[in-house]
Design a protein around this nucleic acid. Structure first.
Lengths: 187, 187
DNA sequence: TTAATATACGGAGGTAGCCTCCGATTGGCT
DNA sequence: AGCCAATCGGAGGCTACCTCCGTATATTAA
């Protein structure tokens, strides 16, 4: 329904160059990478960058949306998994990997979930909805404590992801997430 | 032993004005508060700020050191507490409050723990040493899973503190910390 | 092919923050 | 009072953000 005029050829070319360089820059320097640098490397004026992507978040969202949508799909798949708690844990691990794509991204997504005006809110929100079904199933079948909310779980995941980013080696987030699921008390 | 010439009167006056305004600014705007603004409000040139505190971290450390040292003392006190796990949990909660003093501080302290060259490293390190005795005791008495390291625990705490800062109301960190200790699995 | 026009480009310029450097100032001592 | 070391202040160079508008060009119609 939404009428989309095709982009002018030069516009489309610049748009794509910008996305390529943004991907590189964010991967290398984290979400705070210099926008002027991205424009420079894309061989484009800074004004052109801002016309295509009015905010840093808009740029990030374009780069991440597909990934986040895939994550929502994955949640729906996992609803048929035999073990509800394991399914939830698996899904959260995948989500943790997604928010670990760029250094500093966790902060943004964590904030986006509680800020409807955020550009990332939409993509994140759909993920949360899909995930909350996994949470409810695990609780309904008595595998997850019933007093935990989806928001709390996502926040714990973000926390683990954040912390994982502050550990030297890789795989930190996975280990921490496992700890959170299993609890610290000796059994 | 360390010979300390008394500061010149104007120097001491400026030093203290700077600390006052820094406290205000960090409390209001988080650790990224503008240093030029702090100098301005203190009625002092920016050069004077940098002479007294060569880095942002130096300024923060001066404001926080007493607090962190107190936290180390508290760890030593809690070693005599009857319940090792509860003692550990209490201590971590206190530490979480301390790193929640300024928005964005958790990131700094988490990084400081793995960066010896950091200005905050010393104060943090002493805390960790004190805390690790609480960890070891809880493990020795079989109340804490033996495969968790002090570093992991501190990181989990920082993570909870970080996440607490991304929740609307207060007390978020306490709730999350409790969840981490108790585990997510239904019992 | 050419002309008209909507579309898109680019970067100058204003703002703000970081940090350094050095000439001007002043506290404290004799 | 007068000296000098200690201290001050802020100009200046840098980077980054974001906006605005004169210029350039892709597209469409003639």
């Amino acid at each position: 329904m939404t009428e989309v005029k095709p982009m002018r050829a030069d516009a489309r070319r610049n748009y794509e160059r910008l996305l390529e360089e943004a991907q590189r820059a964010f991967a290398e320097h984290g979400v705070e990478a210099s926008l002027e640098d991205i424009a420079r490397r894309a061989g484009v004026g800074i004004g052109t960058l801002y016309r295509h992507f009015p905010t840093r978040e808009a740029l990030l969202e374009t780069l991440l949306r597909a990934r986040f949508d895939a994550q929502a799909d994955r949640a729906r798949d996992l609803l048929t998994h035999a073990e509800p708690l394991a399914a939830l844990q698996t899904w959260l691990a995948g989500l943790g990997d997604a928010t670990g794509t760029f250094r500093g991204l966790v902060e943004l997504t964590a904030d986006a979930l509680s800020d409807e005006s955020s550009r990332l809110y939409a993509s994140c929100h759909e993920m949360r909805e899909a995930g909350s079904h996994l949470v409810e199933r695990a609780q309904r079948e008595g595998e997850l404590r019933p007093d935990v909310t989806t928001n709390e779980l996502l926040l714990l995941l973000h926390a683990a992801s954040w912390a994982g980013g502050h550990l030297p080696g890789p795989g930190g987030m996975q280990r921490l997430l496992a700890l959170v699921f299993e609890g610290l008390r000796a059994s």
